[in-house]
Simulated assay, not measured.
Amino acid sequence: MGLITFLSDFGYRDHYVAAVKARILQLAPAVPVLDISHGIEPFNIAHAVHVLASVYQDFPAGTVHLVGVNDLGAPRAAWLAAAFQGHYFVTADNGLLPLLCDGRPEQVVVLGAGQAPTSSPTRDLLAPAAVRLAQGELLPELGAAATDVYQLLNRQLRLQDHRITGHVVHVDHYGNLITNITRTAVEVLGRSRPCTIHFARETVRDILPHFQAADPGEAVCIFNSQDQLCIGINQGNASELLGLHFDSQVDVRFPAETT
């Protein structure tokens, strides 16, 4: 018996999360369900991708990840189940899968062909598919192979000899700014050179081990547990104080090498 995780933009005030869990409980009382978050910003695919990508690999192989984000607001009414890196994902065809997998998953099928329309596809279509996968059914048993998946593309780093240009991809609960600049990119392009990080009108000259390594109120850069460059203010909200938000530009610069 597998594990189901549940991620949604349903919030915590209404009955929507409970309704989905009740459906899973009806279908498979023994299948464990673990909440990742239901505080995803409404319809925000980028937020959902960031949260899911940050944690799904920490779960055992074979885990089924049920995603109820923008489940009716997708460009077309279609829902998918997919396999990627030993995990399963069930979600609307809204661009989340290509962003999560940085392209196309290893295997994708279409769910609910011929099923009557529903006002709650996460409860009525995605949850039953997640249960079937958790109980050991194979993807081809859930539907026909998807021939066309709605595509959204991740922002790519711009690499030059002495500069990496990236962007903020998420602002967390504390106002910390998570970028798409990776430790690997800094180390490979930097070639052991010192670097400076530039954002807004600020310059930071060191990457520290954690936010509290700086003085209170001071801007600080770290690599998080996913090896992404992050900008914060010790005991402050970096997004508000620096005026930076999703998609704001961040540069890492290196001195020119001398011969």
Rank of each mutant, 00 (worst) to 15 (best):
G62C: 03
A200N: 09
Q26W: 13
T165C: 13
K21N: 08
P117T: 11
L241I: 07
A130W: 05
A48K: 11
A113Q: 15
L139P: 04
L138Y: 12
V110I: 15
E141G: 13
S248E: 02
G175H: 03
V64F: 09
R155E: 03
P60R: 04
R132V: 12
I178W: 05
S239F: 03
A144L: 14
L152G: 00
L229E: 06
I207T: 02
H15I: 10
P98E: 06
G86R: 00
I24A: 06
D9N: 09
L126R: 10
E106A: 15
L138E: 15
A78R: 15
Y12F: 10
F89T: 07
G103N: 06
W79K: 03
F246D: 02
A30P: 00
R123E: 07
T203P: 12
V131G: 08
Y174V: 02
A130N: 04
N180L: 07
E106I: 13
I40F: 13
V31C: 07
L139D: 07
C101S: 12
R13P: 00
N176G: 00
A113D: 14
P42I: 14
P60W: 02
A113G: 12
L138N: 08
D215I: 05
A146P: 07
H87T: 05
P60N: 04
I36L: 13
T147V: 11
F246R: 08
L52T: 03
A22E: 03
W79R: 02
L242F: 14
Q115H: 13
S192C: 08
R13C: 09
H210Y: 13
P32E: 11
P216L: 03
A116D: 15
D124G: 12
L111D: 13
R23L: 12
D35Q: 09
P29Y: 02
R76E: 12
S239R: 03
P32C: 09
L25F: 10
L241F: 02
V171R: 06
G2D: 15
G166P: 14
P194C: 01
A77D: 10
E218W: 05
V17C: 10
D58T: 13
T184M: 09
A256M: 01
G112A: 15
A144I: 10
V55T: 15
F246L: 13
A256S: 02
D93N: 15
V64H: 07
P32I: 01
Q57K: 15
T122L: 14
L25Q: 13
Q151C: 05
L34W: 12
D102W: 02
D9M: 06
I231Y: 07
A46S: 15
L177M: 05
P42A: 15
A127I: 04
H50P: 06
L52Q: 09
D247R: 12
A48N: 08
V131L: 07
D14M: 00
V110S: 12
G232V: 00
N224K: 01
P216G: 08
D148A: 11
Q85N: 14
L177A: 03
V169I: 14
I24Y: 06
H167V: 10
A130P: 05
R163G: 03
A113P: 09
V186T: 10
E202Q: 11
